[in-house]
Design a protein around this nucleic acid. Structure first.
Lengths: 198, 198
DNA sequence: TTCTTTTTTCTATAGTTGTAGAACCATAGG
DNA sequence: CCTATGGTTCTACAACTATAGAAAAAAGAA
């Protein structure tokens, strides 16, 4: 029996190399050759793990969502209501280098999803999950009396979703007006308005 | 003297063909050949008007912003304060087919701007202009007593900007939860919260 | 008609990309 | 030490792209 590698682990390594390339040179610079080189391999070494480039990209994108989702559930595990809501949204906002890189990966993903049904489906399901969690926390907040606005939770959730998704764009393309502290200020402004409303 | 064409007009025609292609098949399907065919020409006919593909795309993208900006100033010409603010934002929200197409063009543009300094600059200046106009309307609203929240205008403007930019994404990729009336409801919820806050 | 100038088409080219697959390598068991 | 087998490299190829530029076409002026 010769050298044997953990295929799942290798797949993750390759995906991380893909992320680095996309974050650094954009999706157009993410050729199979460059990704392989970034991971320390030659061109054809990716094929056993990802038969086609689309397989690699699809896995890379879905891995971003699982990573973000995992962070979000960790951040809210010992909270509820408004506190959970804030922690949840903070975990999506591009406040540090890692999450700014994620934004640089998600934007090309949106562009791909525009003409790729499978990626659109992946996006839809991830967004639905986030949205439902936000709604849950809003209801907790209402139950705890933290929230008295008559505006429906669905609209508030949509508002927050659009806010954090818009932040992915502005944090990367207008970093001066949307520095981390500004983004947090915007989120807190939004949450304060929601709790004040009656 | 032979047939002579209006170069500026032709450039706009070509840009509109480009938009149609991008909206229909995505930016990856927008090859010079396909764009030329969509405009009713053969491959090389574009060169006199746009020497390179990047020239064409840059002009196409900047044209989207001027079109949107023109619509926005038209919609606010006889309003001020909160009314102007609402009309202004409504003009960005992807509420009809035209503006949904614009969203399908802007998303690839963001992706290009990630690795193209000229396009990033174009985006930054357009966003700064929108942002300043929103701030102006917020100040008008304050002066008219429509607004009493102590939250700074900059944060409110950033909030609204992120909201409408996020709507570009969700309207296209999660149309069910972000149908036109839902988006308007979200905007109105946000505006109502802003005016209620104190 | 014929000429002149603008516009358009068409063909060619150089470069890049994803993918395939043969050749090569490395390693653990006998 | 040998060998079977999973892993890796390398070369090749076919498709596609943007771009260049020569050739053709069109259309008003003389």
């Amino acid at each position: 029996m010769p050298k044997v590698v953990d295929h799942d682990r290798r797949r993750v390594e390759l995906v991380e190399a893909t992320w680095r390339i996309i974050a650094r040179h954009g999706i157009e610079g993410a050729t199979m050759r460059d990704i392989a080189a970034e991971a320390g391999f030659a061109n054809g070494a990716l094929k056993p793990y990802f038969p086609t480039k689309d397989d690699l990209l699809a896995f890379a994108f879905s891995h971003v969502f699982s990573q973000t989702s995992r962070r979000m559930t960790e951040a809210t595990v010992d909270r509820s209501g408004l506190g959970a809501l804030r922690a949840y949204c903070l975990e999506i906002l591009p406040l540090d280098d890692i999450r700014i890189s994620e934004a640089r990966i998600v934007i090309p993903f949106w562009q791909k999803a525009l003409t790729d049904a499978a990626k659109a489906e992946l996006h839809a399901s991830a967004m639905l999950q986030w949205r439902n969690t936000i709604c849950d926390h809003l209801q907790e907040a209402r139950a705890a009396g933290e929230l008295r606005t008559p505006l429906p939770d669905e609209d508030l959730a949509g508002l927050l979703m659009n806010l954090v998704l818009g932040a992915q764009i502005t944090a990367v393309l207008s970093p001066v007006e949307n520095s981390p502290d500004r983004l947090v200020a915007q989120l807190d402004a939004c949450l304060r308005l929601i709790t004040e409303g009656r």
